[in-house]
Amino acid sequence: MTKELWLNLPVKKIPNSKAFFKTIGFSFDEEREREDMAAMKVGEKKVPVMLITENTFKNVIQHNITDTSKSSEMMISFDAESREEVDEIAQKVEKAGGTVFSKPSEIQGWMYGCAFTDLDGHRWNVLYMDMSKMSES
């Protein structure tokens, strides 16, 4: 049945979004890139997040795009190797022009994370999870 999962995310300007995500540590599959689309690779399994210009995205979905200044349709979460990496990512996000709307902090005694918006207002969550402390909370 399912062979691969990928996410499609509308962006205003591919070069700006690529620069933002490269700054915070993501890489791209240059072979899958077009003028209106870039394939960001996420995690060990290299799950693609397709950054697609808003016009192309709107044509594909045949629907309006969410106004990220007013609402969110989803939050994309990814893990970090350590608390320090969470802190580093938060700093890189701000340096790259994003907004950390939830500063790095401990969550439920076994997670440490922060949440941010990218240049187009999409919400992201990065978490370090200490599974050895999970049962304590």
Rank of each mutant, 00 (worst) to 15 (best):
108 Q>P: 09
128 Y>Q: 04
64 N>P: 05
73 E>N: 12
115 A>Y: 11
42 V>T: 02
64 N>E: 14
80 A>N: 01
121 G>Q: 01
48 P>V: 13
125 N>Q: 07
12 K>H: 11
60 V>M: 14
5 L>V: 12
87 D>I: 00
53 T>K: 12
29 D>S: 09
117 T>W: 02
83 R>K: 15
127 L>C: 15
17 S>C: 09
2 T>K: 09
107 I>Y: 15
116 F>W: 08
68 T>W: 00
83 R>Q: 13
109 G>K: 13
11 V>S: 11
12 K>E: 15
3 K>A: 13
112 Y>D: 12
46 K>E: 14
51 L>V: 04
68 T>Q: 07
95 K>I: 11
123 R>S: 09
48 P>F: 11
101 F>L: 03
38 A>T: 06
70 K>C: 04
136 E>G: 07
33 E>R: 10
6 W>H: 14
60 V>E: 13
80 A>Y: 05
100 V>G: 06
19 A>K: 12
32 R>W: 06
55 N>D: 15
81 E>I: 03
89 I>N: 03
65 I>A: 06
30 E>S: 13
128 Y>I: 00
125 N>Y: 01
81 E>P: 02
109 G>T: 12
76 I>N: 06
82 S>N: 06
124 W>S: 05
98 G>A: 07
92 K>C: 03
32 R>A: 10
13 K>M: 02
24 I>C: 01
117 T>R: 12
40 M>E: 03
131 M>F: 14
120 D>T: 05
83 R>C: 08
23 T>S: 14
15 P>A: 12
1 M>T: 07
1 M>E: 10
90 A>E: 06
79 D>R: 13
61 I>T: 00
109 G>E: 12
106 E>D: 10
112 Y>M: 08
4 E>W: 14
116 F>C: 08
5 L>N: 08
98 G>Q: 07
125 N>A: 06
39 A>L: 05
36 D>S: 15
113 G>V: 06
40 M>C: 00
112 Y>V: 15
81 E>K: 03
29 D>R: 10
105 S>G: 14
59 N>P: 01
132 S>R: 10
4 E>Q: 15
53 T>A: 10
70 K>S: 05
51 L>R: 03
43 G>C: 02
116 F>K: 04
81 E>S: 02
94 E>L: 05
26 F>R: 09
60 V>F: 15
111 M>K: 07
